[in-house]
Amino acid sequence: MNSIDYWNDLEELRRRKPLIHHLMNFVAMNDAANITLALGASPIMAHAAEEVEELVSIAGALYINIGTLDREWIESMLMAGRAANKNGVPVLLDPVGAGASRLRTETARRILAEVEISIVKGNGGEIMALAGRSGLTKGVDSLGEAEMDVVDLVAREFGATTVATGPVDHVSNLKQRAEVMNGTPMLQLVTGSGCMLGSVMSSFLATSRDPFKAAIEGLVAFEVAAETAVEGSDGPASFKVRLIDEVYKLNKDSFARAKVRIL
């Protein structure tokens, strides 16, 4: 995408080191923190209702990931989201497992209704669940790919730049649409790879404040790193370690591998 200067934007991110406030699941929390640091931003993982409003006020972006849910966490997510809106902090929502249970789907839709979300990012099944299509998830895994018309539907209903990941990633804010064709199937074998992508995308969002641009930058940076990481890896475990290293090693030449099409 010629209008995006990936390298200069990444250099700016690394210079500013924005604080990314994560409210996210236990399964991927450590990996998300490490990928955020490797990219050049600064992570904090804080869920307590007593401090989320204070912390989000100094953050560059808020990343809400609903992978771990209970009543207290849901309230913290809503409090943090409202505080982010009040303080002009952009919010990324990852509706992990939407469609797998009523709690997850209703929580995601409630956050979207009560908080101004800059980016909603999910796999195909999760985005289809938000669009009212059911039966397309197995736990937190997608059983289908969301086409652009479904992505448009979610973007229209909730007023957020919407990202559906898959073999081809679809991005839409209704005014602009793009497809990103980077990545590797090995990402499907690493728990929390989508959560790590959310951290990378949130870091770009904190820097650019342009949700459509940040979504594409996050996808490209994470997925070109994954393409390099899979070369020479022996399986999912070594791939994950190499992925964090390759995010750390991203440079100007890395982005020559970007495969982005504007529709």
Rank of each mutant, 00 (worst) to 15 (best):
V120I: 14
A84N: 09
R257W: 01
V241C: 06
C195H: 08
A131M: 05
K86S: 00
E51Q: 00
R209W: 07
H47T: 07
R133L: 13
T228N: 11
L112A: 05
V260S: 06
L37V: 11
E116F: 00
E50S: 15
L136K: 09
R16V: 14
V260F: 09
G124T: 09
G183H: 04
M24Q: 04
V220G: 01
L205W: 01
V52N: 03
I111Y: 03
L13T: 03
S238D: 06
G135F: 04
F239I: 05
A131L: 07
R71N: 15
M29S: 14
R82L: 05
T184W: 14
A84P: 12
G183M: 05
E72Q: 11
V89G: 03
N182M: 08
E157H: 06
S254M: 04
M45I: 10
S142L: 04
L39V: 13
R261S: 15
Y248D: 12
S208K: 13
G122V: 05
E50D: 11
L263Y: 15
F26A: 13
T191A: 10
R133N: 06
S202N: 02
A229N: 01
M181W: 10
E51W: 01
S172T: 14
V96Y: 02
E157M: 12
A178D: 14
T162A: 11
G183E: 00
D141K: 13
G144F: 10
T165W: 05
E54P: 00
V151E: 09
S142F: 09
R257G: 11
A131G: 10
L78G: 06
V140H: 12
P185G: 09
V120H: 04
A178N: 13
N251G: 11
S202F: 03
S203N: 07
A46S: 14
D210G: 06
E12S: 11
K175V: 01
N85F: 10
N87C: 04
E75V: 03
S134H: 10
M128D: 07
N65S: 06
A129G: 11
F239W: 11
R71F: 01
A146Y: 13
G166P: 15
I117N: 03
A155S: 15
L205S: 00
L39A: 08
S199T: 02
L250I: 02
T207Q: 12
V224W: 05
V190H: 11
W73R: 15
N123K: 09
M77N: 06
M24P: 00
E72S: 14
E147I: 12
L103N: 00
G122T: 08
K175F: 04
A206E: 09
G198Q: 04
